[in-house]
Design a protein around this nucleic acid. Structure first.
Lengths: 256, 256
DNA sequence: CAGTGGTCTAGACCACGGG
DNA sequence: CCGTGGTCTAGACCACTGG
């Protein structure tokens, strides 16, 4: 329909950047969230293509991404439908999301505390090899504590080689998500994390930081290497979660 | 080149099913594993399209999937390259893999033991609501123990509503991965898992099962709901991992 | 500048599922 | 049978990178 077409293009701009596919995806996602589709049935790809005046391929590409996100699902020969159950799932791990957002989506009031900022002039060997550091390269170690409704919930420790840092920064800048800090102050993009999940019995210092109820508590920790667009490891991050307040979820599929 | 074209199509069959894109993907992945591309540089999309006599879109689709798997990465204006570092990563969680394969890929000799098969006639309320069971529906509970080089490493507990089961099965059938059991005996496809990751201090019975070294050991557990192609939850599975023998990994990206 | 990947189109045919 | 999504093609133009 014409109104839909207008909504998509006049308000934003005429085409390109973000790509048409991305605009269509965002547009459809919004209509889904607004519950504009009765019975969860989404119009046929041909109809959508006509409505939005783009080719069916563009529509299919956008729908494909929404399917991967778990927002919709398709039945060949039948149609495309809203995936209500997955629409409610927060804290999906396969996507990089600021912890602040994660906490908010779980219904808490988030806050961040900068615990410490240190310069480590002699990083240990595992860090040196993980980040391909030249010997004796200094690393910035940033410790942050995330709170939900003022209760400690996530503790993170981020390692950034100082040689990466190009522009002066303040402590406030360190409070932003690392994937915002990197482009601004290091001229680097964070393309992806390779993450290891490790269960842990909270050691004393973490127990204190996270205000854990009893002495022996199980924690979930992430040990992650962040890579740039050239596939080089640039940062390391360790995170520790109180799983009683935040459940981490993940969708696992067949590769096909 | 013609030889390449032949390798792709004569040996397998003439086109379609698996799809062309899938065939191209498999073909390229094999060449990558065989280290056929010098310096990790993959031919341009146009070249590949000519070599394999398919359209560039088909090539791009295949490369796109390999990129998601982390096998390759692209640089606009430059080219497409093998992602050596991620090629070595095993035990990727975002994909459904038989635990047997997972253990093998980590260099151990896998074996499976069927610990117990029970009929639970009064499933608890969380199970009832998770699987949308009608009241008093009996559930088959299958307990399996996976070993790596004869050391216990993964313990699983799978819940299958008996009403799903259409064909007679033996205990040996229960040893196969659940996603093979479901199509054969239940006429269902396992489309995806929605998984929760929970750290745990091993309770006594798990400690014994998994032959844990000391009393208080942290375990990683998965609590998963398996959905079919119609987006209905059909099974529940709980898994417990000894993380000292098996490191679980995951790639996290930006949604775009 | 030439060559690469990134985006988009229009159109074709197939496979499936429900009436 | 028809309408749905699934696959594939050929061709166009853009955006970026390197020499």
């Amino acid at each position: 329909m014409f109104t839909v077409h207008c909504a998509l293009f006049t308000e934003t701009m005429l085409k390109r950047n973000p790509s048409l596919v991305e605009q269509v995806k965002t547009h459809l996602k919004q209509r889904i969230i607004n519950a504009e589709f009765k019975d969860g049935r989404i119009p046929s790809e041909t109809d959508l293509a006509n409505q939005l005046s783009v080719s069916r391929n563009t529509i299919r590409d956008a729908l494909g991404r929404l399917e991967i996100e778990g927002v919709i699902f398709r039945k060949q020969g039948v149609g495309t439908f809203v995936n209500q159950s997955l629409l409610l799932v927060k804290t999906r791990l396969e996507e990089i999301i600021p912890y602040e957002t994660m906490i908010k989506e779980n219904g808490y009031q988030p806050s961040i505390e900068l615990v410490a900022v240190d310069q480590e002039s002699e990083p240990d060997t595992t860090l040196v090899s993980a980040l391909n550091l030249t010997h004796k390269e200094t690393v910035l170690v940033v410790q942050k504590l995330f709170k939900a409704d003022d209760k400690p919930i996530i503790f993170t420790q981020t390692y950034i080689p100082v040689t990466l840092i190009q522009n002066p920064y303040t402590n406030d800048d360190l409070l932003t998500p690392i994937y915002q800090f990197l482009p601004t102050f290091c001229g680097q993009e964070l393309a992806y994390y390779l993450s290891e999940m490790i269960p842990l019995i909270a050691p004393a210092h973490l127990s204190a930081r996270l205000d854990l109820p009893s002495q022996k508590t199980a924690l979930l920790s992430f040990e992650e290497l962040g890579y740039n667009q050239h596939n080089q490891p640039i940062i390391k991050a360790c995170s520790y979660f109180r799983d009683d307040l935040l459940r981490l979820r993940l969708i696992r599929r067949h590769s096909r």
